[in-house]
């Protein structure tokens, strides 16, 4: 790795100051993507600002059917949380399928969504659940947060503090793993709750995670696997790479949506 300077601030204010102090400073949380990227020389931040020692950034709280998950909460903590299982079992199940056990012990929800990898799992969940992303400056609706490949609405010097999710009536996530990386070749999160039926797709879109209007309309009318059959899922705007073509991904979106609806509880 290229040389970098490590900071471990105890407060958001100190973290912002450290981020502003370097030429090209980056936030470090679990590091399960960032450190691997640095090892490949694909990232070379001048400074790393580790947010894990900041009080209140980690942990899960429930208030009246609403889950607040701190940005530095690990995938293993989300997967193992009784509160998450009770309020939104689909989210706990999704977290238990990210990477592998050692990665889940370090990787964080805040890091995953700030990175917004087009094949990551959490963006699909937060978009389908209509989550709110809480930063040190403001609250951002998931609909406005994920803005493109590895791109989010976060400004310079803005740090995710937590995400807020309302418990859905029914939800599930179905993922077709890319067998080498275990990232989603296609993943579909379906949710039926206070904000209606929302369906988010990861792993497939050229611009990253997206909602599918056709699937949402069909499932709003009839929450069943067979309702997916009549939906036209176009290959336009879907990724093609060595693992799968756009048409294959389009078909997988329907298959995963069906599986998710059938599994939803």
């Amino acid at each position: 790795m290229y040389p970098t300077k490590y900071h471990k601030p105890a407060s958001i204010e100190d973290a912002i100051a450290a981020l502003g102090g370097g030429d090209d400073a980056m936030v470090l949380a679990g590091g399960q993507t960032l450190l691997a990227t640095m090892k490949q020389h694909l990232a070379s931040p001048s400074d790393l600002v580790d947010i894990r020692a900041i009080e209140g950034l980690s942990g899960i709280a429930v208030r009246g059917g609403s889950l607040t998950i701190g940005a530095a909460t690990t995938h293993a903590e989300v997967a193992g949380s009784g509160d998450v299982r009770e309020q939104c079992a689909a989210l706990a199940a999704l977290a238990s399928g990210i990477g592998d056990p050692a990665v889940r012990n370090m990787g964080t929800i805040g890091g995953s969504i700030a990175n917004n990898d087009p094949a990551a799992d959490y963006p699909a969940a937060l978009l389908a659940l209509g989550a709110t992303i809480i930063t040190n400056k403001r609250e951002i609706a998931a609909d406005d947060f994920f803005t493109g490949l590895f791109t989010t609405a976060l400004d310079e010097g803005e740090i995710i503090v937590a995400v807020n999710v309302s418990a859905p009536t029914k939800a599930a996530y179905a993922k077709f793993d890319q067998p080498a990386s275990r990232f989603a070749l296609v993943g579909v999160f379906v949710a039926n709750g206070a904000s209606g039926v929302r369906v988010a797709v990861t792993g497939a879109g050229e611009d990253g995670v997206f909602r599918h209007a056709g699937l949402e309309a069909a499932l709003s009318a009839d929450w069943s696997g067979s309702a997916v059959d009549g939906v036209d899922v176009a290959a336009d705007g879907l990724m093609s790479d060595m693992h799968a073509g756009a048409d294959y991904r389009a078909n997988l979106i329907k298959v995963m949506a069906k599986r998710a609806v059938s599994a939803s509880a």
């Binding site: 590091g31 691997a36 490949q40 990665v103 012990n105 370090m106 990386s181």
Partner: peptide
Amino acid sequence: CDTSQCGACVVHVNGQAVKSCSTLAVS
């Protein structure tokens, strides 16, 4: 490996399995 995938470097940190190649010593 150089890609954080192989797990030959797994150790326990505060009782949890962690890939030591994907963790900074100073942290």
